[in-house]
Amino acid sequence: MTIVENIINEICEDKGLDTISFSENGYQDLKLRDDIGFDSFDLAQLTVMIEDEFDIDIFEDGIVSTVREILQKLP
């Protein structure tokens, strides 16, 4: 799922946050807000970029809080 990794990191770089790596253990448990540092505007950006790529609104049925929850929603 390097696409999701790239999307998250693009937003991180944009905001000056530390990037994440999907090759590290436990990356799936990273919390988008608390661990990565996203605010609601970053989450909106994330939904738009993922929707552009996969045609799925990951927040449609509730707020997604971890990387794992994102990946579970994707095909």
Binding site: S40, A44, T47, V48, D57, F59, E60, I63
Partner: peptide
Amino acid sequence: DNSVLGKI
């Protein structure tokens, strides 16, 4: 419409 911000 956006599920996080209401609108974008």
